[in-house]
Computed example of a mutant assay.
Amino acid sequence: MQLTPDQDIILRLGEFGLNATIVNTWIVMALLVGGSVLVTRNLCPDVPPNRWRTLLETIVQMIQSQIGEITQTSARHVMYFAGTLFLFIALSNLLLVVPGFAPPTSSLSTTVALAISVLCAVPLFGIASGGLGRYLRHFIEPSAVMLPFNIISEFSRGISLAIRLYGNIMSGAVIAAILLGVAPFFFPVVMDMLGLLTGLIQAYIFAILATVYISSATADPPPPSPPEDAP
């Protein structure tokens, strides 16, 4: 049993090889881009919505409402980033039901890449919202003594995101493989259904945590407390 799609080399070009993680990532990206083009190619405000447009608007409104409840900034700007994370992870996990398809999210390299994208997005959103000086000041709040601890906290967020997503996806794959050996006719169906549910939940949690981190970087600083001798 292969624990990661990194071990499955699909195409070898000399000394370099394309493993299943890279190829399946391209497949997921192509499906997302192709589906978006097909759904939005005839998108006009004066045309009655069809079922695909209705489905698309429902998904977008759901993501935007969830983000709007968390962040204080414009939900639309955060939605572009967090919504893309959700759709990529969700579709990757949903394709688990396709025989022979290994979700790219079951590779630690993919989850680390997603976590790095969040680590890069947090300061970018923070600087764009309040400027470089205000973003850097939050590292020394409430005092300069907290500087190393705040820096460690920033990086630990990305590590926890990567390990959490990878661990949950891999644990489901390992359990499914064990149950497949015990009862190959019944448990695979049940595990596929649980895998779909778990995949959607993990995509939701990852996108929500990314939104929370961005919201904390773009939130307005608390007002200064009044002096103790003030009346």
Rank of each mutant, 00 (worst) to 15 (best):
I163E: 02
I163D: 01
R164N: 11
R164G: 00
R164M: 13
L165Q: 04
Y166M: 05
G167S: 09
G167V: 01
G167N: 05
N168T: 14
N168G: 15
N168I: 13
I169F: 08
I169S: 15
M170C: 08
M170L: 13
M170I: 12
M170K: 11
M170E: 09
S171I: 11
S171H: 07
A173R: 10
V174Q: 12
V174S: 08
V174F: 11
V174H: 07
I175N: 03
I175V: 10
I175L: 15
A177H: 13
A177S: 12
A177F: 11
A177W: 12
I178K: 09
I178W: 05
L179E: 04
L179T: 09
L180A: 14
G181D: 05
G181S: 07
G181F: 04
G181E: 06
V182Q: 07
V182K: 08
P184F: 06
P184G: 09
P184M: 11
P184D: 06
P184C: 06
F185D: 14
F185W: 12
F186D: 03
F187W: 13
F187N: 03
F187V: 13
F187K: 04
P188G: 04
P188C: 04
P188D: 00
P188I: 06
P188R: 08
P188L: 07
V189R: 14
V190F: 09
V190E: 02
V190S: 02
V190H: 00
M191Q: 09
M191R: 06
M191K: 03
M191W: 05
D192H: 08
M193Q: 13
L194T: 08
G195L: 07
L196G: 14
L196W: 12
L196H: 10
L196Q: 10
L196K: 11
L197A: 15
L197P: 13
T198N: 13
T198I: 12
T198L: 14
T198R: 15
T198P: 01
T198E: 09
G199P: 01
G199C: 02
L200F: 07
L200K: 11
L200C: 12
I201T: 10
I201E: 06
I201F: 12
Q202C: 13
Q202L: 07
A203N: 02
A203E: 03
A203C: 00
A203L: 04
Y204E: 14
I205T: 04
I205F: 09
I205G: 02
I205K: 07
I205L: 15
F206L: 06
F206Y: 09
F206M: 05
F206G: 04
A207P: 00
A207G: 01
A207I: 00
A207F: 02
I208A: 03
L209C: 06
L209N: 10
L209K: 08
A210E: 04
A210C: 01
A210F: 01
A210P: 01
T211S: 11
T211L: 05
T211A: 11
T211R: 05
V212C: 00
V212R: 05
Y213K: 02
Y213G: 02
I214P: 02
I214F: 03
I214Q: 04
I214E: 05
S215V: 02
S216P: 00
S216A: 11
S216W: 03
A217D: 01
A217C: 00
T218S: 13
T218L: 01
